[in-house]
């Protein structure tokens, strides 16, 4: 969980392009979240992981699992 690593100051392994991309995205979202929700700074890594897993599930619910976007069900798309 790259965002939790960044929030708790741990270093991430960035050997692959894909990891570098995830890191760049996570870094920006983390900065925004910390600015908007300062109480995140008081959470430990386990609490953060649990919270972020919940956010991830919610995002997947909205954008994939329960999405009404018909294109997601088109096999060739």
């Amino acid at each position: 969980m790259m965002m939790a690593d960044i929030m708790t100051g741990e270093t991430s392994h960035l050997e692959t392009s894909a990891n570098k991309y995830f890191y760049a995205d996570a870094k920006i979202v983390t900065a925004e979240l910390k600015a908007c929700l300062p109480w995140l700074n008081d959470m430990n890594k386990e609490e953060l992981k649990e919270l972020l897993n919940g956010v991830k599930e919610r995002l997947l619910d909205i954008t994939v699992k329960n999405s009404l976007n018909g294109e997601l069900r088109v096999k060739n798309y």
Binding site: K20, Y21, D25, K27
Partner: peptide, 11 residues
Amino acid sequence: KIMLRKLGAFF
């Protein structure tokens, strides 16, 4: 700002 920061973080 976000665009440039993301790009900066990637490279």
